Amino acid sequence: MTRPVGIILAGGQATRMGGGDKGMLALGEKTLLQHVIDRLGPQVDGLALNANGAPSRFAPFDLPVIADSIDGFAGPLAGVLAGMDYAATKGADTVVTAAADTPFFPTDLVTCLQAAAQGMAHPLALAATPHPDRNKLRHPTFGLWPVALRDDLRAALNAGTRKVVQWTDGHNGRLAMFPSEDAFFNVNTPDDLAKAQAML
């Protein structure tokens, strides 16, 4: 399987952090977003940021910034679609997404997602971790997505689909299991940021 294009989903509204771009928050000597770039970059064939609003605020990262093509705040699936459309212009077959507020995700994310999707006509897999109450916990902003299904996803979004797992389940998406939920710890609140500083 060829290396996918990496798409960092930075389009969240960050309401629990008081608004703004969570990825710009400092974690150690780097921003959250830079931690994500440094982790995902070596695993993929090129990176882009999915974010809405003025792309100039991301100029220091020197990455393409792609906006949602679906009007309104349509959630992570709209970012996935934007990434698929971008990857199509690059001739890529797949994209891998990662969230801009999750700095410790696995350095073997892509290889594990690809292994989980092995043999699928349209490789589609989400990251997951064991969970004591629910057997497994899916992390829907971390996934491998087939560019070939982008028009199907566009139609689903236009029809009102917003839940990632609703769409992936409809296409028999698989799960790539990772051992520790901590790997997908994401920063939603000031307390989370303090915890991330301690984890760093």
Rank of each mutant, 00 (worst) to 15 (best):
D38H: 05
D45R: 01
T31W: 01
Q34H: 13
M24P: 02
Q34R: 08
V44G: 09
N50K: 13
H35F: 10
H35Y: 00
V44M: 01
G46E: 03
K30T: 14
S56A: 13
H35L: 08
D38G: 04
L27P: 06
P42N: 07
E29R: 12
T31G: 10
P55K: 03
P42L: 04
L49T: 04
M24I: 12
L49R: 02
L47S: 03
A48F: 09
R39P: 02
A48R: 03
P55L: 00
R57A: 15
R39S: 14
L47P: 06
V44Y: 00
K22R: 12
R57I: 15
Q34A: 13
G41P: 07
A51S: 10
K22Y: 03
I37F: 00
A51D: 02
P55G: 10
G23D: 03
R39A: 12
M24L: 13
R57C: 08
P42T: 15
A26R: 09
A48G: 05
A48Q: 11
G53H: 08
L25N: 07
N52W: 00
K22M: 08
L33M: 03
T31Q: 00
G28S: 05
A54C: 10
M24W: 02
L33A: 08
P42M: 03
L32W: 01
E29W: 08
I37H: 03
S56M: 13
F58E: 12
T31P: 01
N52D: 15
G46V: 09
P42S: 13
G23A: 01
N52E: 07
L32G: 10
P42C: 06
L47K: 04
L27W: 00
L25W: 06
P42K: 02
L49K: 10
E29I: 05
I37P: 02
T31E: 01
L27G: 04
L47C: 11
L32F: 02
L40A: 09
D21E: 15
L40W: 10
N52L: 06
G23F: 02
V44R: 05
L49N: 09
Q43F: 05
A54Q: 13
D38A: 12
